[in-house]
Design a protein around this nucleic acid. Structure first.
Lengths: 207, 207
DNA sequence: TAGATTGTTAATCGATTAACAATC
DNA sequence: TAGATTGTTAATCGATTAACAATC
């Protein structure tokens, strides 16, 4: 269905649409329009229609979009009708918070295991998990055919850990460490660094 | 110095440059080039030179950039030569992890207080803080003239809390809640939602 | 000096928006 | 039907890149 090659920036907006649709569905709404959806997200209605048109025709002229239908379609397009297993590397404060966060399953992801290289932590419980040693990480990930990892280790260790992950067959990495990773072309990395956002905003503050 | 109006997308890359420069400085390097910096970040050298040229001339032909000098200049441009006080709202798992994270001070931010509306939590310690009641939140923030807030409350409460923050004089909000906020034009919001990134990546995974 | 790299201009590329025929 | 909203095309806008004179 991806007509030819959909711009990455468009793909990146689909989860946002999904989130807004989910919120609307939760409020019991059944129909929405590109205008309403755009208003919700601060995006023009034209852009939403154009984005969606990359993947097919999901609306009805004069009416708009059926929320549940569009929701299901976007889930299919993003490949999250199914639930993906994810491994979490790093059981520090951040890793523990991530492990305890309950919101993943709802949105298509299940934490399958949490790893740490600190012998004192290995075997300890975090949320519903027991922290595993990184010793057998490669084998274990490969055996379970897990493709997604979340990296919550110090910046200084991130690169080396990412290389292990790639060796284990991981193809998508959510990197919480404030550093850039070098990985092969077939592996995608997304970064989360709140400091980057804070520093971006201070530019606009007075004084 | 911002010649006229610098594109927001350019401003957004400056913290990335800052981070890479900081890493280089940590390795004892003194000089870098747009090419090296770009290689580090996966950005073209032309773009880096163009971005920097929006703010002045920081390099030397034939030589490149003095790392410490450029670092200081970028901090000045982003207004983080000084340390900004930040309030943190929400003392759940995520809020606590944020409160315990030590990396803020290094990069220009100090958590001044942490708030929660749960009476059971108020008064309890988190990291080096005692959780404060949201009852006097508006007055306290206004008195201290704090301009930046991090929002780690459930999505369902985020909008209403953000309205209080705006009333308190907050002008920049880092929103961890998976929802869009409606705030006045003079208030900036940046969002962090790891699920959005995960859902973006699954699009590219096979199967 | 010769080699290297900046800052900047012009060209290219891509993304957003405006507008409207189609149609529910 | 009349009103509304889609899907899509063409126009606009903005961002990235290529190229090179200036110069350290």
């Amino acid at each position: 269905m991806p007509a030819n090659k959909v711009p990455d920036i468009v793909v990146g907006r689909l989860p946002l649409y999904l989130r807004a649709l989910s919120q609307m569905a939760g409020e019991g709404k059944e129909i929405t329009s590109s205008q309403e959806l755009g208003g919700q997200l601060g995006i023009s209605s034209a852009q939403i229609r154009k984005d969606l048109s990359q993947f097919g025709e999901f609306g009805k002229q004069g009416t708009g979009y059926n929320i549940n239908f569009l929701f299901d379609q976007l889930k299919r397009i993003l490949k999250i009708e199914r639930v993906w297993d994810v491994v979490l590397i790093g059981a520090g404060d951040l890793g523990s918070a991530v492990a305890n966060y309950g919101g993943f399953l709802d949105r298509g992801f299940r934490i399958a295991a949490i790893y740490d290289n600190d012998p004192e932590k290995v075997g300890q419980p975090v949320g519903q998990f027991l922290i595993r040693s990184t010793r057998n990480l490669i084998d274990e990930i490969r055996t379970q055919q897990i493709k997604i990892a979340m990296l919550a280790v110090p910046a200084s260790e991130a690169q080396q850990v990412s290389e292990k992950l790639v060796e284990a067959g991981i193809e998508a990495i959510m990197c919480y460490a404030p550093t850039s990773l070098f990985v092969p072309d077939n592996v995608r990395v997304e970064y989360i660094d709140p400091l980057l956002h804070l520093q971006h905003m201070t530019y606009y503050l007075p004084e």
